[in-house]
Amino acid sequence: MATKSIHLELVGDLTSNTFILALRRFMSRRGKPLNIYSDNGTSFVGAYNDISKFIGTCCNSLSEVMANEGINFHFIPPYSPHFAGLAEAGVKCIKYHLVRVLGNCNVTYEELNTTLIQIEAILNSRPLTPLSTNPEDLLPLTPGHFLIGRPLTSLPTPDYKDHSVSSLTRFQRIEQLRQHFWARWSKEYISELQLRMKWRSCKGSLKLNSLVLLKEENSPPLKWKMGRIVAVHPGSDGVSRVADIKTSTGIVRRSFSKICPLPEPEESG
């Protein structure tokens, strides 16, 4: 909730025991959480009750044990998904594009798990805010910084997006699924990030040295084109519609429609 990072686990069914196994895997890799928030799904509530019964002979309640361990369970009110809006938004963006990318594709458990973990890395690579106010620093703060202390990266791979499925091996097909998800989701994220500025208004003009994300076509997964504004060029009406951006490969000129400013730390809530 605090870092907006996402962790995905593939499970075989929705029973309570399967959820407990998924929770154990999460804690083994991410550490013990302080708080667990969830809806009132039967697997979550059932797991909570099962653990309560198991330890009921030696303790008063599961809440007491978890409190002693530093873990607090929180269930949102029934039929109120807006109480977990941040988590629900993350689940929605994954399911919406994943269903369309997979389609009727037949994959094994290992292949689907690999796809989900790679999607997790894509979501945790998204830029949140500038990492610093240094004009020479072109790196944004991402959820990956909170997980591993640095940006998430991936191995370079050929572009398979336009290849027919019949011409690909199963190994290449998994990479194609990742690239299709990246192409769909990154465009949606950039569109949401970009400010809807009117051409005739100066409100919300970009500032010099602001860290921005550039819209780039056919960028590989986990590669975000970042830069800082070094100059703006106002038109005859005094409204700036073009800016020079300093990137890692040099200075480029882009219209404001291709520029997505990142929220400043003091503006992010």
Rank of each mutant, 00 (worst) to 15 (best):
C202K: 15
I259K: 00
L214M: 10
D244P: 14
A231F: 10
K223G: 01
R241S: 10
V230G: 11
T247C: 02
G250V: 01
V230M: 07
K215F: 03
R241F: 06
H233W: 03
V242H: 07
V230F: 01
V252Q: 12
P234H: 06
E192V: 04
L208G: 07
R253Q: 09
G250E: 04
S240V: 00
L214H: 03
V212L: 04
S257W: 07
S210G: 15
R253D: 06
N218R: 03
S205G: 05
I251T: 15
R200G: 14
S257M: 04
L206I: 13
E216L: 11
I245P: 00
S248H: 13
I251Y: 08
L208I: 14
W224L: 01
P221K: 04
E264S: 15
I229C: 04
E217D: 11
P234E: 03
P265F: 05
S191D: 12
S236I: 04
T249Y: 08
T247W: 05
K203A: 11
G235C: 01
S219R: 03
S248I: 06
E192Y: 01
L206W: 06
F256M: 00
K258N: 10
N209S: 13
S268G: 06
E266R: 12
K225W: 10
M226H: 02
E188L: 13
Y189P: 02
R228H: 01
V242A: 00
E267A: 09
T247Q: 08
E188K: 09
V230T: 15
E264W: 06
I190K: 02
W199T: 15
E216P: 08
S255V: 09
K223N: 04
E217Q: 10
G238L: 09
L214A: 05
R254G: 09
N218G: 12
S240Q: 08
S201Q: 13
K258A: 08
R253E: 05
K215Y: 07
L195I: 13
V232P: 01
D237E: 15
G250T: 03
E267I: 12
H233Y: 12
K203Y: 12
R241W: 10
E188C: 05
E188A: 14
L206R: 03
A243N: 09
I190A: 13
G235N: 04
G227P: 05
R254L: 03
L262H: 08
V239N: 04
S236Y: 08
R200N: 14
I259S: 03
I251P: 11
P261S: 08
M197V: 12
L222K: 00
